[in-house]
Amino acid sequence: MQTPPSPSDAITVSNLRKTYRIREGGSWRGKTRDIVALDGISFSVPKGQIAGFIGPNGAGKSTAIKILSGILRPTSGEVQVNGLVPWTNRIAHVARIGVVFGQRTQLWWDLSVAEGLALLRDIYGVEPERFTRNRARLADALDLGAIMDQSVRQLSLGQRMRAEIAASLIHDPDILILDEPTIGLDAPSKLAVRAFVHELCRDRGTTVLLTTHDMHDIEALAERVIVIGHGRILADSPFEDLRTTTLSERILELDFHDTPPELTLPAGAHETAREPHSLTITFDPSQIPAPALVAHVGHLPGLDDLRISRPSIDEIITRFYADHAA
């Protein structure tokens, strides 16, 4: 018997499968075969949480997002988003979610941002007073005042993405689905978008499902990471748990006046790079704690400086994908 969704969950996915049938050989007479895009995935997202949904190209992310958005119908399985089945309650469903596709626009190229928002007001049936209030709030939070009267085609990519986020929120959705929301943005624009998403969840309790190849977005925003690969859920945990289980090594960088000396390292540490004036040592803190390693190298002749860091999130995710490659 299927377990009913928890009332505290905004999104519930149970044993979701999606299979595409393709024809080989470029002819309508060619043989067909099935491609499994989603192979029985299950997960839930509580109300008010920011969840990262990541995976390599071809993992099944886009298919899952399209099903959650009501664009695609699955082959089998169950989905509820705010208590609605996306593909059977489509009109009611889209009125309660916001979606931002970083490589597509929901605004109209030849209309101004203000005109596009007004058109969405009519499409969603937003009451005039609520629309005025939401437009003012979003324009202030996303710094849209100077571009409201510009056509969308005249905007920079950063300006357009901020306008797209406003468009997705003009009707007060409970759930926001972000697909590559910072693609192509410069650093200040990325920081602005991340700050806004944080405030949205904190102040309004909006649930956010974030899918992106920018792992810094995931690290900055997601309370939890769902990793998909080959159509299956490979991991579902806080990012720190994924870091610990995937790549727990630390990095010790040493700078010297002159050529670094030769040295013997304790178990759990090994030299990974040597430059004319620097050394890089990778170590496992469960075998050699950082203070002990620093004490071991701290008296080396000519040592100028040292730094300890963790592998970057990109290195961690790359290692995870490699460990789970088919």
Rank of each mutant, 00 (worst) to 15 (best):
G229P: 06
A114D: 14
I54K: 06
V152Y: 03
G184R: 09
I251L: 14
I41V: 15
V193P: 11
Q287Y: 02
L242A: 02
W87Y: 10
Q159T: 04
A141C: 01
R23H: 05
A136Y: 01
L111H: 11
L210Y: 05
T280S: 12
T105G: 12
A10H: 13
L209I: 14
T264M: 12
A325E: 14
Q150L: 14
F131I: 08
R160W: 03
P181L: 00
E219M: 10
T19C: 10
Y124D: 00
A290D: 12
R135E: 07
L221M: 11
S168L: 02
A267Y: 08
P301F: 07
G25W: 13
P7Q: 09
F320E: 04
H171T: 03
T182M: 02
L16F: 08
F196M: 08
D258Y: 08
E271L: 15
R133V: 01
K47V: 08
L242K: 10
F53Y: 15
V225T: 15
W28S: 07
V294P: 06
V152S: 02
V294S: 01
A118K: 15
R194G: 02
R90Q: 13
S189G: 04
L263A: 06
R23W: 05
V225Y: 07
G58E: 07
Q287D: 09
V99P: 01
I317Y: 12
D323C: 01
T272L: 04
Q154D: 14
A141G: 12
L138H: 04
I316Y: 06
I165N: 01
